[in-house]
């Protein structure tokens, strides 16, 4: 029973991290897209040939998420056994 408790804690924490990442991802995506994209296209600035809103929201946003996910998973995700001891076949 105690073993279950410690694994549950880890699982709950990691699920919350997942929710946090989605919220961060959404804010980044939304803020750049509609923050920079909400003007006349003739006033757009460009990064690497793409409109700035698109570059920051979609291209950079994806790269940031990929890096962030990699760091968080390797640093903060804990390895746990899935089967209870002695229960394997």
């Amino acid at each position: 029973m105690h073993k279950d408790d410690y694994r549950n804690k880890i699982a709950n924490r990691e699920a919350l991290i997942g929710v946090g990442l989605v919220i961060f991802n959404f804010i980044w995506w939304y803020a750049f897209a509609y923050g920079l994209g909400n003007k006349d296209p003739s006033e757009y600035t460009y990064v690497f040939g793409l409109p700035a809103w698109f570059f920051y929201s979609c291209v950079l946003g994806f790269v940031v998420m990929a890096v962030l996910v990699t760091i968080i998973v390797t640093k903060y995700f804990v390895n746990v056994p899935f089967d209870d001891e002695g229960e394997g076949k």
Binding site: D4, R7, N8, I10, A11, N12, E14, A15, I17, G18, V19, L21, V80, F82
Partner: peptide, 9 residues
């Protein structure tokens, strides 16, 4: 992440 370890266990 959401289904995660809990679902597996």
């Amino acid at each position: 992440m959401i289904l995660g370890k809990k679902f597996a266990i």
